[in-house]
Computed example of a mutant assay.
Amino acid sequence: MLDALSLDQMRMFLTVAEAGSFRAAALKLGRVQSAVSHAIAKLEDTLGVALFDRRGHRPVLTPEGKALLVHVRDVLLRVDAMRARARGLSGGVELELGLTVDVLFPPRLVGAALAEASETCPSVAIRLSAEALGGPITALLEKRSQLSIIVGESFRDPRIAMEALTSIDMIAVVAASHPLARASGPLDAAALADHLQIVQFDRSPLTGERDIGVISPRTCRVGGQDIKQAMILAGLGWGRLPGWLAAEDLAKGRLVRVGTGALGRRAQLPMEAYLCHRLDEPLGPAACSFAAALARLCAGPQDRPEPESGVRARP
């Protein structure tokens, strides 16, 4: 009986579960509601279990439905990945390479990898954007980019393949003129909370109500790392910057490390950077060329001052 299962039925089941009703699923799939209801009923008959409790205003997943939904989602992800692989094997050079880069990742590495990819695929146009926090993953989920570079572990998604590239050191810094720079002895989190913290806000919906890395109740929320750096240099407050961005100001004494062990040794914490793409979307020759160049640049020796560089190649 299970041989009678179809991918179409499974997609309808997944869509109803995610949309919350047969009507909403039908609109999303471009089908009539009766066709969706019939397909789910046939699937339930084939499986021998009820997937939804229909007694209320909206269908609710039964315990059996919740258990099987995990398997259905996994099957569909694998099928989509296989189709993407097949399209990639048969496809030609893409017209445009869309890339979204986390603002914490060093742009010089991106530029060097794009230059190599452009030599391999000179006809391909490049669309490059920089976004913070959940932005790079959202760009993939919304199919605005073929590739994204993310930094950190907060935005994993089962539809996204991730490959580690390198480590970015985030350093808690403050202007040399700020009171925190003159504080004696190690500072704890409570002492940091007494001062304004400069933090990056997220334009994507992925963070929801979460505050990532925010310690102080008093914050200045900014839209980019360049303005964040400028506000910290101006003495407005303290904040964390990627080491590659803070290195020159630290070396010249315009910035100093915050004297705390609450944010890692020497006020420094490593965050892993990943190159990401959708499992169900094939990567064309230009995307593959960029990915290979970036991985090589991140893994190879790099001319960086230590210890203030803030970028370390993956072992």
Results as ranks from 00 to 15, higher is better:
M10T: 07
E44L: 06
D74W: 09
F155A: 02
A84C: 10
L51Q: 07
L14S: 11
A25G: 04
T120M: 02
A193W: 04
E131I: 01
R314N: 04
A176S: 14
V60H: 12
A117E: 02
V222Q: 07
G185W: 01
P270S: 13
M12I: 13
T100G: 05
L165Y: 05
R265K: 10
L97H: 02
E94Q: 05
L187F: 02
P63C: 13
L275S: 06
I150D: 05
H277E: 14
R218C: 08
I160H: 00
L95W: 00
D157F: 06
R304V: 13
R159A: 14
T207L: 12
I168G: 03
R87W: 15
R55A: 03
I40D: 09
L99A: 03
I168L: 03
V49S: 03
V103A: 15
A181Q: 06
D226Q: 12
V75A: 05
R314P: 00
V16D: 07
A139C: 01
G208Y: 04
E116R: 08
G264R: 10
V72I: 15
A25Q: 01
M170Y: 07
P305N: 13
D194L: 15
I227W: 01
A39E: 02
A293D: 14
L47W: 05
G253M: 13
T46N: 12
V93Y: 02
S34L: 09
A132I: 11
A117Q: 03
A287I: 10
I212E: 09
R156Y: 00
R108F: 13
G213E: 08
S216H: 04
G20A: 05
V60Y: 03
G56F: 02
P63R: 13
A292I: 08
M10K: 04
G253S: 15
A112I: 12
G134H: 08
G213Y: 11
G135T: 07
A262M: 03
D303H: 10
L114W: 00
D102T: 01
T100Y: 05
L250H: 08
G237Q: 08
L29Y: 00
T62H: 06
K66A: 10
L140Y: 10
K252I: 11
L77T: 14
R240G: 09
E308S: 08
A50T: 12
D188T: 06
Q302F: 00
V199Y: 05
A39F: 00
G111F: 02
S204Q: 09
R73V: 15
D249K: 09
G300H: 14
S184D: 15
R85L: 15
V199G: 05
R73T: 15
A292P: 00
R31K: 14
E131F: 03
L245W: 11
V49R: 12
P282Q: 10
Q9M: 15
V16E: 10
G30E: 09
A176L: 03
R54I: 02
S21L: 06
A50G: 02
E272S: 14
G92A: 12
P107K: 02
M10P: 01
S129M: 00
V258F: 14
L2H: 07
P158E: 09
G65T: 15
A191L: 03
V110F: 13
I160K: 00
I160E: 01
V93L: 06
